[in-house]
Design a protein around this nucleic acid. Structure first.
Lengths: 214, 214
DNA sequence: CTGAGGTAACTTACTCCAAGGTCATATCTC
DNA sequence: GAGATATGACCTTGGAGTAAGTTACCTCAG
């Protein structure tokens, strides 16, 4: 063959696209949009750069496809949990549990969702807005229930606590990725203990109880 | 004058460096290392690109100087608070209060500290390690006290809670930057309420008390 | 059955550009 | 003149994006 395997009619477009998107998810989610190179992703997927451009149009187009793939996976899982009837911190803990399990085989999807180096205009921004809305809606809802539970009705408090909650989820997942020997189940148990610890520490001394640290 | 103000012996090196570093802090802290352009920073500082290279050697050198400037400011403030005798969440809240006040005139310093697009090797990595150690040490210490308070002695729990705490601080500061009309004092009060809310929500119902949502 | 043309899959070898970095030189003070 | 401050114009490079050509499968007329 004069040229590698040029012209191999081989793989149907849909299959190839999925294969490229999966490779792209891992690269974008690991090094971020800005540092990722299209040529590198093509190499990872085992094909050449122009094929990527033929199928996705641009680096941004490729990112968009990858983002949608990953965001849909995660948003769907969070909505599944939200459909349960748990409230307050219990609901938060179940969401975390679901995320740990979903992310186990493809942890980089999480970083893909919040990539700060991704373009902040055009179609990517629109897609991010869609998924951010979907996900934030769930967080806002959960935090709202919690605030009602404790009698705080300041909307800015709710907004700030939503930010803190989402950030805490991020921190826990990131911490987990740095401790790969920990299983999803152990992580969920850990989250339960941490909540208990925070709660215990905030209590006036005369109300302190052992909320279980084992 | 044939060339703008070339050769103007004008500003002494030390002054010029500070001026450039301050401009660089704002740019690096706002758009991040990767997206920042040296020419742009030079323009912001009112001087030309080669002067930046003459004084700082490279984009990385300029970032290093900016990072040290910003990180020192913040680490010093956190250590100041840590020297007080508060413990547990009270200490956390005082740290937040100190950060809000320090960041009020130059909010971008915060993002500078945790810029994900900064180089992760060489002198920058070394400097980041130094300051990350200094700051993390304080968080670890504070979280350790808190865990002792509630009787959880799992070191991984402490490690994870430290990550969550630092992330929560980040979230609160970021939220604040998006709500510029809120004063540092109001933010500190808000943080008190949020802690109370979390604590209340985690309690078994029979122990629930009004921890004050106003 | 067969082979010519149509089309999808695929690659090599470019162009182009933004941004990092350098060089030679000019002007000021002492 | 020596040395510090300063700049316009240049060089260089990595990576996005493109042009043009190559190979393989499919279909359908004869």
């Amino acid at each position: 063959m004069s040229r590698a395997n040029a012209g191999t009619k081989g793989v149907p477009r849909a299959d190839r696209e999925l294969q490229i998107v999966r490779a792209a998810c891992e690269v974008f989610g690991t090094v971020g949009f800005a540092k990722a190179s299209v040529a590198g992703i093509a190499a990872d997927a085992g094909i050449s750069k122009p094929l990527v451009y033929q199928y996705f149009g641009s680096k941004e187009g490729l990112f968009l496809a990858s983002f949608n793939y990953g965001a849909e996976t995660l948003a769907a899982e969070m909505e599944r949990v939200a459909a349960d009837d748990s409230v307050g911190l219990e609901r938060g803990l179940r969401t975390l549990d679901g995320l740990f399990r979903t992310l186990e085989p493809q942890p980089w999807l999480w970083r893909l969702l919040f990539d700060p180096s991704a373009p902040d205009d055009g179609e990517v921004a629109a897609a991010r807005a869609v998924y951010t809305d979907r996900i934030t809606r769930l967080a806002v809802e959960g935090v709202g229930e919690l605030m009602r539970l404790v009698g705080d009705d300041d909307p800015l408090d709710a907004s700030a606590l939503t930010a803190v909650w989402m950030s805490a989820v991020d921190a826990l997942i990131t911490w987990w990725l740095d401790h790969p020997e920990v299983t999803p189940t152990q992580m969920t148990e850990r989250c339960h203990r941490l909540i208990a610890a925070l709660s215990g520490a905030a209590l006036p001394a005369h109300l302190m109880v052992d909320l279980g640290a084992g």
